[in-house]
């Protein structure tokens, strides 16, 4: 087994586009769930709206890429308002139900035959990313030790990590401000915050919108990288993956989602390659598993790791143990 190669490919994933996309999705969920206690189970819908915003505007209507960006973000704001207005006055579980339904509605409308002319059906939409790659200032591949990035990938990585950095900075600034304090208060007990003269409904709405817009950025980065907007990428497992990443990294921590995303994608690639290598070398007998099973086995192993984490480190990697200890009182 070529451990050097396995490690190199895994480290590429550590900073790869998948890590960026899920870091952004998880940062959004962190604002909503980690800090405000809102159970948004429809982050996939926000990402899909972001992706469709660019794809539909550029490919279907042949308009400017920049307009597409704006439409994607405005779309996410509108979706957050649509979901929030009826549910944020109710108990937390209603938002969870409505958002999980909404994320399937967005995906199913996107892949429906009825909306084929606009959303491209289940094949999705392609051919909208050229304007983005035209902006690419990198003209030759970038080499760093054993790593080599083609200029296209490099451009996505740079833009993606800048976005992650900006979103992280915004969350950091907000969560050490009085605004963030109100959000954390709402997470603990919204009636107490109401009794202190804060408009809880408005704060929950702001949190939902902010998290949703960050989720839309995730969808934009992913569809621009793929050069295609496919609705089935944004199924509910996208959302739950982002949740797993957030809980792994540590909910209600500023860097938790980023760390969680990097670790998960590194571990995925590493487990996959290591298993494949082991099978090829007959360390793992073929009656037990073959190379086609690695995809499923890595999910199982991830599940086991998450269970172990929740048992032994429920606060996540970066979380504060003392905060979790309070819940046990």
């Amino acid at each position: 087994m070529d451990w050097g190669n396995i490690l190199e490919l895994s480290l590429r994933e550590l900073i790869g586009v998948q890590a960026i996309v899920f870091a952004l999705a998880a940062i959004g969920i962190n604002v909503q769930f980690g800090y405000t206690g809102l159970l948004n189970f429809g982050q996939a819908a926000f990402a899909a709206v972001g992706g469709y915003g660019i794809a539909v505007i550029v490919t279907t209507y042949d308009m400017s890429f920049w307009l597409g960006l704006v439409v994607g973000i405005v779309g996410a704001i509108v979706l957050a308002l649509l979901l929030g207005i009826p549910t944020l006055r109710l108990r937390a579980d209603y938002l969870a139900i409505v958002t999980i339904a909404a994320s399937e509605i967005v995906r199913l409308v996107g892949r429906s035959a009825w909306g084929r002319d606009v959303f491209g059906g289940s094949d999705g939409i392609t051919g909208f990313s050229s304007a983005f790659y035209d902006l690419n200032p990198f003209t030759e591949p970038f080499e760093f030790g054993p790593f080599q990035f083609r200029e296209r990938v490099l451009w996505v990585l740079v833009v993606g990590w800048v976005l992650v950095a900006v979103c992280t900075l915004v969350v950091w600034l907000l969560m050490r401000s009085p605004w963030g304090r109100v959000l954390k208060g709402i997470r603990e007990d919204e009636d107490a915050v109401r009794s202190l003269g804060k408009n809880v409904y408005a704060y929950k709405m702001q949190s939902l919108v902010l998290g949703g817009v960050i989720g839309a950025l995730a969808g934009m980065v992913y569809s621009l990288f793929q050069g295609a907007m496919q609705p089935d990428v944004y199924a509910t497992n996208f959302t739950f993956f982002a949740y797993a990443i957030l809980i792994l990294g540590g909910a209600a921590t500023v860097f938790g989602p980023v760390l969680g995303a990097a670790i998960v994608w590194f571990a995925f690639q590493f487990i996959d390659l290591a298993l494949r290598g082991a099978i090829r070398q007959d360390y793992i007998p073929s009656w037990f598993m073959d190379a086609n099973d690695t995809g499923a086995v890595r999910f199982m192993l991830t599940g086991i790791v998450l269970v172990l984490l929740l048992v032994f480190r429920p606060q996540g990697i970066l979380g504060d143990r003392r905060e979790i200890a309070l819940d046990a009182r």
Binding site: K184, G185, E188, V193, D327
Partner: peptide
């Protein structure tokens, strides 16, 4: 309704 995961001073500032 003390806000458990906020410190005492943060509770007050809120």
């Amino acid at each position: 309704k003390a806000l458990s995961k906020l410190t005492v001073i943060e509770n007050m500032r809120l």
